[in-house]
Design a protein around this nucleic acid. Sequence first.
RNA 1: GGUGGGAUGGGUGAGUGGCUGAAACCAACAGUUUGCUAAACUGUCGUACGGGUAACUGUACCGCGAGUUCGAAUCUCGCUCCCACCGCCA
Length: 423
Amino acid sequence: MLEIQRLRSHKEEVLDGLSKRNINATNTINELLEMDALWRENKTQLENISAELNQLSRKIGDCFKNNQAQEAQQLKNETQELKVQEAALKTHVDELDSKITTILYSLPNVPHVDVIQGRLPEDNQLIESQGELPTFSFTAIPHWDLAKKHQLIDFELGVKVTGAGFPFYRGKGAKLQRALIAFFLDEADKAGYEEFIAPLLVNEASGIGTGQLPDKEGQMYYAPEDELYLIPTAEVPLTNIYRDVLLPNEDFSIKLTGYTPCFRREAGSYGKDVRGLNRLHQFDKVEIVRIEHPKNSEKALNEMVSHVRDLLIKLELPFRILRLCGGDMGHASAMTFDFEVFSAAQEKWLEVSSVSRFDTFQSNRLKLRFKDAQKKSQLCHTLNGSALALPRILAAILENNQTPDGITIPKVLQAYTGFDRIT
RNA sequence: GGUGGGAUGGGUGAGUGGCUGAAACCAACAGUUUGCUAAACUGUCGUACGGGUAACUGUACCGCGAGUUCGAAUCUCGCUCCCACCGCCA
């Protein structure tokens, strides 16, 4: 959620920024600022009346102590009219307040100055390309067929037990999955991230804190009996650790990581995009989350990008890094880098990580602040990224490392899997 | 699932209708002094929003929401959460 103070003082800048998302928010923001002015005016009036009532009440108390019942009764009568006014104003102020909040929720984050305007995935900026695209002397087999051939993943069994998008991993497939998780967590640990094992169900307040609610509840699985949501990413429980937190000084840099399954309803997806491991309702991911002083968030973002980059290099996967254009960024993001690995049999790039800075957009909702040197509270910056999401990494490893007589396990994983080939 | 107890500022905890935005103690911070991994003393010490260049000031907040009252941390109702014990159990 954008800060209303920012809209008051830097309206043009915000409008410019939003135009990179191809949004013309001029009317919305003008309307918002009008409401805000009205809100403040009414709020001041309301507070004046409250102050007057408080004074009268004190006087009435004094009268009773001095046995001046007559005077007290007179003053009581005076309060009647004021109380009616107070109630009416309060209703009005509350209404304005909730209208303002609704509009604020609907506005996306302002893209960072370095983000370019754009509409389509093709408008994203290519930052870096790494690794050679594999070539084969035979026809490369897509991962869903490899998985079946080597009994690594059983999609049909998942359909039987749960439904589409909930595969079983089995045998070496399961071990490979576990190896990837352990590898990612170990790397995050080495980079100074504290590991958490988080709840997989969260309450409504947490969903609101990170922005999944109120808009995107359709994307989350929900357990109505207990009013709990299955997490779509570890970002939700990890970031919400710091909901309603006021850090005591400026000297902080919080780095969290966690492995969790992620649950996404993915309503509306279909076709070849969802084939095999490309899009699942349940998948595994290691997430990294950072909470930083505003002056450090740029540095933190770079560190996260280079962390993810190193993971892909160690896994020997060809990848590219894109800086998303305004139109392709998520609602809450100020800047996002997408990582895509090349999947040799499908011959396409698969998104495996998204690393974003949110600046104060999330912390404003979360009420996550710190005390600065002047003892004033300021909003922290939050960032997060996948490091990494497993299914498409697995797909790329299977497809890229296939040989006529089996699949080679990347060296860095062999200590984790205990085998170097799948035959 | 059953029974009982509880929710107050960073912590412990006082407070049953006005003098309480909240005692006291601890912690923290600043200073004074004496000095050797410290003590004593003094002072400061909740958050949010509005107004003001500022000093400051107004309002709201004692789990959440509603009610009674001129006035609520305190009374009434609803809800949530926590703790203890019993039952069940990975």
